[in-house]
C-alpha cells in the first residue's frame, strides 16, 4: 500500500478539524491561537501534497513558506491584541468578551 493524495488530505482534514475544534471550544485565547496554527498547517499540508501529486508546472509549495512567515507575524500581532484585550477586560477568555452584541 503506497501513500496517495487521499491520505495526505485525510491527515490535513483531521488537522483542520482539530484546529477548528480548538478555536470553537477553548476558553483561553492563546489555545485558540494554537488551533489557528493547526488550521494553517492543515492548509500547508494540502499545498505540499497537491504540489507533490500534481503535474502542473506551477509549484504551490512555495506558498507554504509565505504562509509560515505570515503565521509568525500574525501570531505576534495576535499576542499583542491579547495583551490589549487583557488590559481592557481583565481576561482573555473569549466568553467574557461580549461587546459585539451591542
Amino acid at each position: 500500500m503506497s501513500i496517495t493524495l487521499t491520505h495526505f488530505i485525510a491527515v490535513s482534514a483531521v488537522l483542520f478539524s482539530l484546529g477548528l475544534f480548538a478555536i470553537l471550544t477553548r476558553r483561553n485565547s492563546v489555545t485558540i491561537l494554537m488551533g489557528l496554527e493547526l488550521i494553517l498547517n492543515a492548509a500547508n499540508l494540502n499545498f505540499v501534497a497537491f504540489a507533490r501529486f500534481s503535474d502542473t508546472p506551477f509549484r504551490g509549495d512555495v506558498a507554504v513558506l509565505i504562509v509560515i512567515v505570515i503565521a509568525a507575524a500574525e501570531t505576534a500581532v495576535a499576542l499583542a491584541i491579547f495583551i490589549n484585550i487583557f488590559r481592557n477586560f481583565g481576561s482573555i477568555d473569549p466568553n467574557e468578551i461580549k461587546t459585539l452584541k451591542e
Partner: peptide, 14 residues
C-alpha cells in the same frame, strides 16, 4: 442567538 461571542459566530459560520 446574538450572543456577542466570537466563537458562537464562528460556529454559525462553520
Amino acid at each position: 442567538i446574538q450572543t456577542g461571542k466570537v466563537q458562537d459566530y464562528l460556529l454559525f459560520v462553520v
